[in-house]
Amino acid sequence: MTLLALYLLALLDGLLCGLRASMGRCAVIGKRGYYRRAAFQGVAGAQLITTLALVALLLVAATSSDRADVRADLEGAARRMLWVFVPYATLVLANLALRLVPSNDIRSATSVFMLGPLTAIRPLVMIAGVLYGIFPSRLLETRLLGMFVLLLMLSLEYALNRRADRRQEREIRRLI
């Protein structure tokens, strides 16, 4: 259950990373299809990362002499991570939900005061969450796995941005 929750949070993060990477790179007015594709690419990126993480986890479990111990340690770390990631995700989703209120003031305020700063602290939240999760762990495998997943998650937005940037460059060169 704990791992499933982390998996879903990773997909949500991927979705939002995909959207962010695509924003400001397409100037038509109707962008539903464009954003749908961007969100899908973000989710696909997150899926790739979680698959890699799962493979690493299975490798750790397969090579361990005491699987039950590894599993308990990993679950403990994952549970602690949720204490950081769930409030952050809740805050992000609550502010996105607030943007449904048909008020320019409320929508602008969510951008300026919440969504902007929340985007800024995303890498810090990732680092804090993973460190809080793995720091009390007993096993080196858990710590290494946590750091591996952290590295992958931090590189996701960078990779999506690079990809979107190249696509945008090509499009602009086609226009001018």
Binding site: G24, C26, A27, N104, R107, S111, I172, I176
Partner: peptide
């Protein structure tokens, strides 16, 4: 000039993103 124009487009696409985020179309029409 050509490179500058490409750069300007990039800048203005980004600026449009801010206008979208601040629902500026709604604001003006209101």
């Amino acid at each position: 000039e050509k490179e500058l124009d490409r750069h300007l487009l990039k800048v203005h696409w980004e600026m449009q993103r801010l206008a979208e985020e601040f629902y500026h179309g709604h604001r003006v029409w209101e």
